[in-house]
Amino acid sequence: MIGLLFNTAQAQDWPNLKKYQVANANLNPEVKHRVVFMGNSITEGWSAARPDFFASKAYVNRGISGQTTPQMLLRFRQDVIDLNPDIVVILAGTNDIAGNTGAMTLVQIRDNIHSMVELAKANEIVPIVCSVLPAYDYPWRPGLQPNIKIPKLNDMLKKLAEEENVPYLDYFSAMADDRNGLPKKYADDEVHPTKEGYVIMEPLVEEAINSVLNQ
């Protein structure tokens, strides 16, 4: 019965809109040059692994573990647009490939990210489209060949960014090993970055953010 109640509640808030409602309401509206990080566990875990990276800047972490692009798209207005940022950093897609909320094609993943890009631009927010991080395999769902699918998706995301004239941030090239995987020196489970992995990512994203702010 408890499991049934949990599943019913989860179904009623599939995108997990409740998670950041209070935090959003408590944000200082006067902060300038706010940057929202939209993503999944890779983004959410960033604050725990490297809290100073977010605490010392106008950065807002809106990652939710396990989420896929359709879930992010549903909460994009509440967790990004309504916060009035200058920039949104979109890092998404690996959980779609893993099938966390059902089967998704690469085109469908790209299209959901495209919709987030369009929403951001329509609200005068600059979207930074990030490559999906490398993954050789998913420990929780092996055999889906993310090492083959992620590079293909990244090529599509890079083309999307070029067509929309928005920044593309390539984490993949800086972190992938010769298997198109994420080595253990950056992620114990080869999917979720450790502090060492985020240390690689931080200067890359800050360069992209500063480039936008300096334009």
Rank of each mutant, 00 (worst) to 15 (best):
I87A: 00
D111P: 14
A103I: 13
R77L: 12
P146Q: 02
D96P: 05
S65F: 11
F76T: 02
I81H: 02
D86G: 11
L106I: 06
F54D: 05
F53P: 13
G93F: 05
R141M: 09
I109T: 12
I64S: 03
S56K: 15
V60S: 06
G63A: 13
V132F: 00
P151T: 09
P139L: 06
R62A: 07
T68A: 11
R75E: 02
I64P: 09
P70A: 13
L157H: 05
M104R: 15
M156H: 01
N154T: 02
A135H: 06
L83G: 03
Q71C: 12
G63V: 13
T101S: 10
I113E: 14
G143H: 03
V117Y: 05
M104S: 15
K158H: 07
A120G: 07
N154K: 00
Q108D: 15
A122N: 13
D82I: 06
L91E: 12
A58E: 09
W140M: 00
P70F: 13
F76G: 06
T101K: 07
P85W: 00
E124Y: 14
L73C: 09
L133T: 02
N84E: 08
A135K: 04
Q145G: 03
K121I: 11
Y138L: 04
L106F: 11
L119P: 07
V89W: 00
D96F: 03
D96L: 05
I125V: 06
K152A: 10
Y138M: 04
W140D: 03
V117K: 04
W140E: 04
F76Q: 08
I97F: 05
F76Y: 13
C130M: 01
N84D: 10
I150E: 08
A55S: 14
P142A: 00
K152M: 08
N95R: 07
T94Q: 06
A103Q: 12
D86E: 14
G99F: 01
V126Q: 12
Q67K: 10
P151N: 04
P85N: 03
V132L: 01
V60F: 14
G143K: 01
Q67E: 12
K158W: 03
T94I: 12
E124W: 14
P70T: 12
L119F: 14
I128W: 04
P127T: 00
F76A: 08
N123M: 07
V126G: 08
N95H: 05
N61I: 12
I148Q: 10
V126M: 15
L133S: 02
P146E: 02
F53G: 12
R62L: 08
S131L: 03
A98M: 09
D86C: 11
P51G: 01
A98C: 07
L133V: 02
K158L: 04
G143I: 07
V129D: 13
V80W: 01
D86M: 11
Q145F: 10
I150N: 10
P70C: 13
D79T: 08
L74H: 14
N123E: 06
K149P: 09
T68S: 13
A58L: 09
I125D: 08
V60I: 15
P51I: 00
Q108C: 13
K57I: 04
Q78I: 07
N147F: 14
R75W: 00
I81Y: 03
L153H: 10
M156G: 02
T69G: 14
N147V: 08
N84R: 08
I90C: 02
L91P: 08
L157G: 01
Y59P: 05
